[in-house]
Design a protein around this nucleic acid. Structure first.
Lengths: 332, 332
DNA sequence: TTGTAAGCGTTATCAC
DNA sequence: GTGATAACGCTTACAA
């Protein structure tokens, strides 16, 4: 009359063997052939399933990893979540997902819940500093915490350089860098650094307007207005945006202002996200290797030997035309 | 020299009280004030965190819910995941996310993992029948399994009617229903039913082309070609697509064919997804109440009294113009 | 009220 | 190779 799920004890009784034997069978430890068969038959018959909680408690290994993300509605984040989940499932790990809406209090609540659940590790993309037990394997995305915490990110600096180089190559003489985002510094800030560095090395003067999330988006409009020349055109001809999303908003803005893209101004974003459905790129962009990032996070997190993991892993990015630069789409 | 996290035993020793007392404090069971203070101080000092696994094993309550989705890259799914996650977090539940890519084998693997983890319940949107322990609370999205499993979905039938009504109201005389999707039947099939029912009740002849996922998308093109009249125009003037995504693809197709939207043909989709970033709708559409769906799933799943939960819950949908019908966008 | 002790389902250590 | 038995960290009767 047991209403709940069968346990190893039940299996042992059914098979007529000792409890320990059943455990061994399920852990792949050598056991007499005849016993193994009996145990497996009994387990099959009872529909037995290992209880991961009990196992985890004993072995302090839970085969569960926590993924902490600001949200899952951004195409980049959702791709990340999906790939990480698949990579984990392949290795027989489960994934606890926490969405934080970038709120520090929620982020901290998540960390607490994670610790209560004794996960085997955490993969986190958070905008705020986290207080996490040093003993818990932790891999950070896009944000460097400390040398003990490997940070997986794209080659943001290289991507920034690439964008600048591309704009110059396509004839831009007055490039501009635009950004919005968290005020907290992260690896993604290097996108602008790379862009500026290349411009400087080529002795090309550039402009930049870098906003934080709280600031008025209208400042971008003002920026453009202040760059209007007497003939109504803009004196800038190339824009690198820190994200595709920003590029998208800037494109809308320029459109309203009657600026032609890409004839008057060429725009390059960063991320490589695409419209769901049509698969159309949002803009010409530097593509992040999302799947590779996901795979790398999982690999590092589950590596046995955590002694010689690099502190920062920058994965290579690629450029793809997306209609907002003077070149055929998909070209290059 | 304990390297791992502190346990209740440690807290008890530190506070100089019995183990049971510590447990009571953390479970909100009445305990002498002086004891409570001592325990809390000790816990604070040691940085103690309840071990949910141990607790779950004993109480067979894990405060964890599994969400099984085909993927998280579709805007509707990701919104669902996000809202469900938030709703659960608010109630102090964690969420295990499984993505199945709609593959029956992965779906079954997930179910197995879920059972091993003794979750408190499952919310699932799956295309294939699942063998899940009847004793485990289960809420299905968009797919009816059995009267014991509540199914949460939109008012698909009503939405279909609404779409038809709208097209007719906007002057369409030759409406068409188009669908693609899983061959397995689900609640979403009622979208077409509602559409057809309304057309019939109004005595308006309609056409329909209903494909399954495996089938050649080119059939849609052929369908349109066969509906060309001698003057090169189409003899259909209104299309209801089973999803926004399909609508999006159909729009691309019609565009290639030189058909003007919405002048020649008006199109209505179903879902209410929007381009990330601009927030632009994909098309005129029937909007699903995603957040409400998420909340409802969580509510039903965590309801104590599971005896009188309805077997099918259809949440109300709304219509919104999105540029592919003859009316101002955002209007009605 | 507080402390004690028996379990929850596993795994791991031993004698056999 | 097999089978008792003691943990793992916690909850919960029950005894003090």
């Amino acid at each position: 009359m047991k209403s709940s799920q069968p346990t190893m004890k039940d299996v042992a009784k059914e098979a007529g063997v000792a409890l320990g034997t059943v455990s061994k069978v399920f852990n792949g430890i050598a056991v007499g052939e005849s016993y193994r068969v009996k145990v497996e038959a009994a387990a099959q018959k009872l529909g037995y399933q290992v209880n991961q909680y009990a196992r985890g408690m004993r072995a302090s290994k839970t085969y569960t990893v926590a993924l902490i993300l600001p949200g899952v509605d951004h195409p980049f984040f959702s791709a990340l979540a999906q790939h990480i989940c698949s990579a984990l499932l392949q290795r027989d790990y489960r994934m606890l997902l926490y969405v934080t809406a970038s709120r520090p209090d929620v982020e901290q609540q998540c960390i607490q819940m994670v610790q209560q659940n004794r996960v085997d590790g955490i993969i986190g993309l958070t905008y705020n500093a986290l207080e996490v037990d040093e003993s818990l394997p932790f891999v950070s995305i896009d944000r460097f915490f400390s040398p003990n915490v490997p940070c997986v990110t794209s080659d943001n600096y290289g991507g920034g350089r690439m964008a600048a180089e591309k704009l110059l190559e396509l004839g831009c003489r007055h490039p501009v860098f635009l950004r919005t985002g968290s005020a907290n510094s992260s690896e993604t800030d290097k996108r602008g650094n790379g862009f500026k560095a290349l411009c400087q090395s080529r002795k090309i003067p550039f402009d930049a307007l870098e906003l934080d999330d709280g600031q008025d988006f209208g400042l971008f409009r003002e920026f453009f207005l202040s760059h209007r020349t007497h003939d109504g055109k803009l004196d800038i001809d190339g824009i690198f945006c820190s994200t595709d999303l920003l590029a998208c908003q800037i494109l809308t803005l320029l459109n309203e202002m009657g600026v032609r893209i890409p004839e008057d101004v060429q725009v390059i974003g960063f991320d490589g996200i695409r419209h769901y459905g049509t698969g159309t790129p949002y803009c010409s962009t530097i593509i992040q290797p999302v799947k590779k990032i996901a795979q790398t996070c999982v690999d590092f997190l589950l590596t046995k030997d955590r002694s010689n993991i690099p502190a920062l892993i920058c994965l290579p990015v690629t450029y793809a035309a997306g209609g907002t630069t003077l070149e055929p789409v998909g070209g290059d």
